[in-house]
Design a protein around this nucleic acid. Structure first.
Lengths: 140, 140
DNA sequence: CGGAATCCTCGAAGATACTG
DNA sequence: CAGTATCTTCGAGGATTCCG
């Protein structure tokens, strides 16, 4: 599984303070690692599930409606690789793997909470904007 | 351009408070619209550029290293559709289009600031976790 | 049970060319 | 200048099967 194929690691630029000079931005900003992680269809929900305590693979899977085994495996691998989730093998009878949130993963939920609140709060505006846009473009 | 092909609009579930029941999560949560927007390679940088004031298309393009006109057009369309950016045509001589951040888009930068600070602050830990993971998996 | 390996498809990203 | 149109490529994502 050659996962880290083209992991970008350059240009510590991003968007700290209002830059007024013609500063240029590059796509391979280190913060992209996290944005890409959040972009994953299931990452945030996995973290939400694991907030209730450690879960086995199928226990997580059962709480995620419509996730495939492959997608969940990839998602958990990436969360583990980024240090947000830990994986522990239980040498029991039929085999068992337990996933748990790490302190790092738990700390992410503070800023994510702020973002989540923004999304819930402004969702009507976004929805209205979308309907306005679609009304202007589609029915031509 | 039939952009809104399968825009999900269902299941107001997400991750509000520590749910302790076997609540199930679905991928077509409304908050995905915003997460997918943030996931875009250039969205956040476009917003950062527009924070300095309105810009013409090529003015934005010049500040984004490596972006193609197609990618930038798509990105701006989506930002406009979601109500985060406004588009204004200037009927000048050779034609001109000015993009500006909306109040809604500006308000997003508050929670995003928190997230950005988390990313910068914890990037060393993420980086270390990645190196640890890769050291355990690759060199077998 | 918790995956890894394989095959397949479909849609997104890039390059190029043309236009109001 | 600010896009749209068309073609191709390429790889993520789903379905299925096999393994420790």
């Amino acid at each position: 599984m050659p996962m880290p194929k083209a992991m970008p690691r350059a240009m510590p630029d991003a968007l700290p303070e209002p830059a007024c000079e013609p500063k240029r931005f590059s796509a391979d900003c280190p913060t992209r690692v996290l944005l890409d992680q959040m972009a994953d269809k299931w990452s945030m929900m996995v973290l939400a599930v694991l907030r209730d305590g450690p879960h086995r693979f199928n226990a997580v899977k059962r709480r995620l409606e419509g996730v495939t085994q492959k997608a969940l495996t990839q998602c958990l691998r990436r969360l583990e690789r980024n240090g947000l989730v830990s994986r522990r093998v239980i040498p029991s009878a039929p085999l068992g793997v337990e996933y748990a949130i790490t302190p790092l993963g738990a700390s992410l939920q503070v800023p994510f909470g702020a973002l989540y609140r923004w999304m819930v709060e402004h969702q009507p505006e976004v929805d209205a904007a979308q309907r306005r846009f679609d009304a202007r473009t589609l029915p031509d």
